[in-house]
Amino acid sequence: MYIYLNGQIIKEEEAVISVFDHGFMYGLGLFETFRVYQGHPFLLVDHLHRLRKGLTELQIQWDVTNEQVVDAIQQILHKNKLQDAYIRLNVSAGPSGLGLITEPYKDSTTIIYVKQIPEMVKEKKGVFLKIRRNTPEGSYRLKSHHYLNNILGKQEIGQNTELEGIFLTKEGFVAEGIVSNLFWVKDRIVYTPHIETGILNGITRQFVLKLLEEAKITYKEGFFSLDDLLSSDEAFITNSIQEIIPLYKIEHKLFPKSERHITRWLQKKYNELKHIL
């Protein structure tokens, strides 16, 4: 495959970055993953807005425009002969030598990875993880290179793609999936953990909340217990690659397909808009 590295389209095996890149040394880097549908990067503006906000927090200067990102994506899609793809846009602090610094980073490293969309499962089973969700490094969770907590969660459940591990906070509140946000429905009200629990405010999560608001479907964000989740009528997870995936079971709690009313409606709206927004 070909990737984008600092303005160049190169073969992935030829890609090289500095061993002094602070994205590698200290985890100072952010990334966005999103889908491209028939050449259209879905919700790209939202992803770039979150990325730039986080880079400002980390004092990483990044002068790439939206137009340049779109152009780079189109180039790697063309080079790889793809129209539907998985994209990861990665910006790290860049090389700055050994040791921590407090000055802004002015030589960031930009990489755009691309791969074919893997075969997606239609539904998943949720399992509660023993390892707890770590707290954000700053005032809120960034989509950063600090991924050890997620990896340990994934190691706990293994490679089964039909499972999604569900983190709890250290206090025992429901948090999020390893790579997803979590929603459930009780009596036609949609529930999801508040970002103050320390979860990532996912772009697809934000999109779902906007759809619910526009349709005047009541939703509540908060600090919820296991009983709140396990007494619900339907449940689903979201992320930008897997889209909206129903959970047919969480531990021993079954969610009948016949109860997936809001999940199916959201999936329908997503499919209507994924080539547009």
Rank of each mutant, 00 (worst) to 15 (best):
L168N: 14
Y147A: 15
G153E: 08
L229V: 09
D233R: 01
F183L: 10
I203S: 11
T192Q: 14
H146D: 13
E164R: 01
E196G: 06
T192E: 11
E164Q: 06
A215E: 15
F173T: 12
K220W: 07
F207M: 12
N181V: 03
F207W: 08
G177T: 03
L163A: 05
E213H: 12
T192V: 07
E221W: 05
V185N: 01
G202N: 11
L182W: 07
E162S: 00
R132V: 15
Q155E: 10
T197N: 06
E213F: 10
T161M: 06
E243V: 00
L142M: 13
L226Y: 09
S225C: 09
Y140F: 10
G158V: 07
L226D: 12
R188V: 09
P193R: 05
I237S: 06
E196S: 06
L182D: 07
L212W: 04
L212Y: 00
E176I: 00
L152Q: 05
K154W: 06
H146L: 12
R133V: 08
T169L: 08
A175N: 04
E164T: 02
I151S: 08
A215Y: 04
V174N: 01
P136V: 09
D227K: 14
A235Q: 01
F224R: 06
I203Q: 09
V174Q: 12
L200W: 13
N239K: 07
L142W: 09
Q242I: 04
F183A: 04
D187N: 14
T192I: 10
T169A: 11
Y140C: 11
N181W: 08
L168E: 14
K186V: 15
I189A: 13
L229S: 11
T238S: 13
A175L: 07
R141S: 13
L142E: 06
N150S: 11
R132C: 15
N181R: 02
S139L: 15
S232H: 07
L152C: 01
E196R: 03
G198R: 10
I157C: 08
I151A: 11
Y191T: 00
T218N: 08
L148C: 07
N149P: 12
L200K: 06
T197L: 08
W184Q: 01
I244K: 10
I166G: 05
S232W: 02
N239L: 01
D227T: 13
K220A: 09
L209I: 13
Y147Q: 14
S232R: 02
L212C: 02
L142H: 04
F183N: 00
F236A: 02
L211C: 12
D233A: 02
R141A: 12
Y191V: 05
L229K: 03
A175C: 13
I166W: 04
V174K: 03
L212H: 00
I189Q: 12
N160Q: 08
E164A: 01
K154G: 12
K186W: 13
L142Y: 08
I237L: 06
G172F: 07
L211G: 12
L200D: 09
G202T: 00
I244D: 11
A175H: 10
D228V: 09
E213G: 05
E234Y: 01
G177K: 09
T169M: 10
